[in-house]
Design a protein around this nucleic acid. Sequence first.
DNA 1: CCCCCGCTCA
Length: 811
Amino acid sequence: MMLTSKPNLPSPSLFLPHTFQSLQQPIPSHKLQFAQSPPHHHHHSHAHKHQPNTCLSTLQDHPNIQQTQQIHAHIIKTHFVYSHQIIPLSPFQSRLSHSAQYNFLITSYNKNNFPICSLKIYAYLRRVDFQVDNFTIPSVLKACGQCSLVILGKEIHGFVLKNGLDGDVFVPNALIQMYSECGSVVSARLLFDQMAGRDVVSWSTMIRSYVRSRMLGEALELIREMHLMHVKPSGIAMISMVNLFSDLADAKMGKAMHGYVVRNSNDGKVGVPITTALIDMYAKCGNLAYSERLFNGLTQKNIVSWTAMIAGYIRCNKLEKGTKLFNKMLEERIFPNEITVLSLIIECGSVRAMELGKWLHSYILRIGFVLSLPLATALVDMYGKCGNIRNARAVFDFCDNKDVMLWSAMISAYAQANCTNEACNLFAEMRENGVRPNQVTLVSLISLCAEVGALNLGKWIHLYLNQQGMDVDLILKTALVDMYAKCGDIDGAYSLFSEATDRDICMWNAMITGFSMHGCGKEALKLFEEMERLGVEPNDITFIGVFHACSHAGLVEEGKKVFEKMVCGFGLVPKIEHYGCMVDLLGRAGQLNKAHELIKSMPMQPNSIVWGALLAACKLYKNQDLGEVAAKKLLELEPQNCGYNILMSNIYAAANRWNDAAGVRKAMKDKGIKKEPGLSSVEVDGSVHDFVMGDKAHPQTGKIYEMLAEMSMKLNEAGYTPNTSVVLQNIDEEEKETVLNYHSEKLAMAFSLINTAAGTPIRIVKNLRVCDDCHAATKLLSKIYGRVIIVRDRKRFHHFREGSCSCGDYW
DNA sequence: CCCCCGCTCA
C-alpha cells in the first residue's frame, strides 16, 4: 500500500472543525448507558495520549468513541508535525500502512455509530487523491448504508469499477449490503446475480435483505437455490434463514429449519445466537413449548436470549409467565437493555396488554432509562393500540425533537380510536413543525378515512401526496383504493386500481372486497377471472371477498363454482370463514336446508358466525324451526350477544309466538344485555360528526330536531308507516315511533340535509347493519329531498336514489 | 494487522 499524496497533505485545521463538529453531538444515551462496563480499558484513557500503539490495540477490542476521537486527533496532530507520514512512532504502528490506519479509524467510527465522520474521512482521502484501497471501501460502504446515502454509495460503486477494486469478494458483498440498507433491494439483487465468486456471505446478505424488506417469497427461493448450489451455510447464514421462518410464522417449516440447523452445526452443537433466533422463531410460530425447551437448555443465557423468551411469552399472551421470567432475570442480575424494553413494549401493544405495558413504562422511569425516541414511539404506539389516548398523548408531549416515527405513532393512535379531527389536527401540526410525513403516517390517515367514511378528507390527502411528489408505494396505493371503495366512490377506487401496474394480492383483494361491499357481484367475479387469466395466485381473503360478492348479488351457482375451484383448483383448505360465507350465500338464496347440511358437514366445530348466517337466513325466509335450532346454538355459544337475542325474538315475533318473544327480551333484560349503541357519522367541510341515538350533544341540536320533525311529517304524507317491530324495548307504540325517529342514522341525515347544498349526495357511515325501518324511510327520503343518500353499514353499501336502494332490499 | 454478513427492537 503506497501513500501517493506526499505534497498536498492538508493542514489539520482544514479538516478538524468539520469532523469535530459532528463529534460534539451527544452520544446517543442508549449507546452508553447500559453498555456492559468495560472491564479493563478505563485505565488506557490517559495512557494512550502518549502511546498510540496501546490505544490502537485497545480500540480493536473495545471500540469507544472518546478513544477514537483522541486517536483521530493524534493522527492529525502527528500528521501535521511529520507532514509526510502518519505516526510512524512505535514498532506496532510502523507495521500499519497509512491506508490501514485510516481504515481503522473508519471502522471505529462506524462501530460507534458515527458514520458521518467516516464519510468525512473518505471525502478527505478522495480530495487529496489518496489511493483508497479495497480494504477501506467496504468500511466506507458500511457508513453509507448506516446513513442511507445511496447517492454516495453509487458514486463509490463507480469508483470501484473504474479502479478495478472489485476483484475481492468483500467489496461486492459490501455493495450488496449498502444497496439493501438504502432500500434498493433490486440493485442489490442485480449485483448479486452479476458477481462471479459469490460466497456464503453474499448469499446470507441477500437473504437477509429480502427478509428485512418482507420479500419472503424471494428469500425462500434464494434459500432453495443456495441449497441446490451446495453452498454450506455458515452460522450467520442460518440465522438469516431462521429469521425468515419467524416472519413466515409457519411452525411446520420452522421445525424443518431447526432440523437443518442441527444437521449443519458442528457435532450438532448449536450456538447461543442461533438458538436465540430459534427461540424467537418458535415463539412467533406460536410454539412456546419448543421455545421454552431451547431456552431452558441454554447453558449460557445472555440478555438477548432472555429478551427473546420474555417477548415470546408476551406475544402469545402469557403475560404472567412473561412477568415472572422478567423478574427471574433481574434476580439473576441480568439487566435489560433498550432493545429488551423496546421489544417487550411493542409486544404489549400487539396483544393490547396495557397493564403490563404501563408497568414497563414505570420500570424504565424508575430505573432511569432515558426516554429515547424509539422507546417513546413504542410507548405511544402501545397506548394507542390499547385505546388509551391520554397516556399516548402524555408520552408524546414529553418528547422533544420528535421525528416522523413519533408523530406518526400518535396520529395512528388517534386513527385507531377513530378520532378523525384530532388525527388531522396533529397531521397539520406535524407539517407546521417541518416534519415530512412518511408513507406510514399517510397509510394510517387514509385507513382512518376509509374507516369513518371521510371521502373528502381522503381525497385531500390523495391530492396532497400527489402535490408533494411523494413516492406512492403499493401499500399506499392499496390504502387509497380501499379508502375510495369504503367511502362509497367505487369508480374512484377502480380507476386507481386500473392505473396500478404492479398489483399485488392485497391490491386485488382490496378491489374485489370493494366491489362486494357495493353489491357488484358480477364485477368482482370478473376481476377474479382476470386474476386467474394473469396467473395471480389468490389467497384466503380473495375468496372471502368473492363469496361475499356472490352472496350480496344472489349469484349462488357462481359462488358454489368458485368454492369448488378454491378446493380443487387452488388446493386451499377452506377455513371456518369460508364456510360462514357459503352458509350465508346458500341461506340468502333460500336454500336453507343445503346451508344446514353444509354446517353439519364442516370438518370443524361451527362457530357463531356460521350459525348466525343461518339464523339471519331463517329470519328472511321465516323458517322458525330451523331458526330455533340455529338460535339455540348461538345462545349456547354467545349468551351475551345482543344481536342473536334480538334475531331470536324477531323469529318468535314473526311467527306470532309473542310469549316466547317476550321471554327472550325478559331474559335479555335480566341478564343485563345491552344493545351495542348505534353510531352514525357524516363528514361535512372536512370534519367528521358522530351521532348516537337520541343524541343531543351536537351544537346544532335545535335545528337538527326541527329538521327531524319536518322529515317525519313529509314521510307520513308520503304514506310511510313506522316499522316498530325493530324496537325491542318494552314501551308503548307511540314511544317506539319516537325512538325510531331518533335513530342515529336519521340524526345524521337531518344534520346533512341542513348543512350540505341541495342536490349534493349525502354519505353516512354506521357501525351496525341498517335496520328495516331506517332502510324504508331512507328510500322515501331520497325521493322527497331529491338526494342521493349513500349509507355504509357494517357489511355493505346502500345507494338510495329516487326512492329505491341499490341493494334491491336484499341485504 | 485492516474489510462483508451474526441472536432480541427498528
